[in-house]
Amino acid sequence: MSDGPDLIYRYDGSFKGLMCCVFESFYQRETPLRVISHAETQESLFEIREVVTDNTKASRVMRAVVEKISGEAMNLVYSAYLSDLKDKELHILRFLRLGFKYGASVMRMLTDDTVRILNKAVTHLSNEAALLRGFVRFSDFGGGLVATIEPKNNVLPVIKHHFLSRYPDGCFIIYDKTHKLVLLAQQGRSRIIQVDDFVPPQAGNDELRYRTMWKRFYDTIAVEGRENPKCRMTHMPKRYWAHLTEMQTPPDTRPITDAPARLTSNNTPASGLR
């Protein structure tokens, strides 16, 4: 096996695409210097190899991971792919090299740096997903619910099951502004699509009233004499405040218009297993 210190893989950013990079790396017996997605542009002196996404190759890799390592390892890899770990592709590649060597026991090698880094990234993802199950704030637009989030990790595929169960008959949209993804859900069915931009409609009177009432509840429920800004900040980091109704002062009462929601999209399904 040779290291390819002057070689960079580029893929389409999808999970299957990443699995094809794994295939390529094993097939060519080489480890690239970096693996980048199309979204990243990199001025580079190094050779860039385009890795084309191929369903058959991707499936072969995924099956091999499950059979030769474990289903648990497959989950770890997929979750790590959703995380915001820097150079996650390379870490995943390294992990799979270890995994194919040691088999299922790689999952117990918690003090190995490669394993630890992936686990840490996945914990970060699950923690953020757990927070967002609570922090998503919907607005009601004539029966449909719309929310915007700005997570670090790609949490939509993780949290969608929860919201589908919460609103089994509902129609809702969650827009992930960071990753430009939209989760569309209706009557228990859902899909995630890539968008260029998403602008929610303006709130109506009823909506503004409920926001005001919620803000009032929030302000009233705190016990004076026990203020603890540090504790609040630990649990509810400031970067989430922009989309939390109760943290807007004064409550969000922007003028009301009838402008409908705008969704700009090329309608390609977003990356990810479905």
Partner: peptide, 15 residues
Amino acid sequence: AGICHSFAADGRCIT
């Protein structure tokens, strides 16, 4: 596991 939806000024979970 329960879900916290917000945290009040006293740092307590609002669920």
